[in-house]
């Protein structure tokens, strides 16, 4: 009984995340189909990866016929933050969170699930985390399926316009903090300018490696010029 109620409370607190994922993954589904993948492939990617930026980066590489090394490097770079989140979450787990549970629940570490679990009042129980992951992943996979299906049936004029949706979401993620923090503004602008410059002057560099180079240079520059101190974080 207790296990079930923990799972249920996880599901309930994860509902907003699931709904949010539904719309983002809808955009991913359309983008994946536009890049030449099938609906089934798009759904499998969402089910096995459960991450937005990493999946977009991955689909770009598949579409461009990039190497597996490039795929691994891009995923490593884009998803590296999950390591830090996992590290942080590992400090606040209930004693019932044994190794098998950790191996299973690690699948669902995303920005939003991290936010939910790290602000949870008591030490995290496996059932609670499974509940949040279950509802979030349902929204993520369901949205991908709907988006991919829509991408296959809607007229080209509509799907062409919808190709911009996922990037619109990225902009909605990084612009507001850029307005508030000049450090993030600096990082965002330098990454964008570097990325555009690379495409113009070194078009032979693949999209994946370009993201790695630009992301690394501008975040290193940000860390050197605007180091984060403990007070700023809280």
């Amino acid at each position: 009984m207790k296990v079930k109620s923990n799972f249920l409370s996880g599901v309930i607190s994860g509902i907003p995340v699931g709904l949010g994922y539904l719309s983002v993954s809808f955009a991913f589904g359309i983008m994946a189909v536009r890049s030449g993948l099938t609906s089934f492939q798009a759904v499998i990617i969402s089910l096995t990866n459960l991450t937005s930026a990493g999946q977009v980066g991955g689909v770009d590489i598949i579409a461009a016929g990039g190497s597996l090394l490039e795929m691994a490097a891009v995923q490593f770079m884009i998803n590296l933050r999950y390591s830090l989140m996992g590290l942080s979450l590992s400090q606040n787990l209930d004693s019932s969170f044994t190794l098998p549970h950790r191996l299973a629940a690690a699948y669902g570490i995303t920005d939003e699930i991290f936010a939910l679990c790290s602000t949870h009042k008591e030490p995290i129980k496996p059932a609670y985390m499974y509940g949040t992951i279950f509802i979030a992943a349902s929204g993520w996979v369901g949205g991908t399926l709907i988006g991919a299906a829509a991408g296959e049936v809607l007229p080209p004029s509509v799907t062409a316009s919808l190709g911009i949706v996922i990037y619109g979401m990225f902009i909605a993620i990084f612009i507001p903090p850029s307005v508030k923090h000049k450090s993030i503004f600096f990082v965002v602008i330098s990454a964008a300018l570097l990325s555009i410059a690379l495409r113009i002057f070194l078009p032979s560099i693949s999209v994946g490696f370009s993201v790695i180079i630009c992301g690394l240079i501008s975040s290193v520059a940000g860390a050197v010029i605007f180091p984060k101190t403990e007070e700023e974080e809280s």
Binding site: F174, V188, A192, I196, G215, S219
Partner: peptide, 9 residues
Amino acid sequence: YAILSAMTF
């Protein structure tokens, strides 16, 4: 932020 920006532009 750097990665999202580089992926967008």
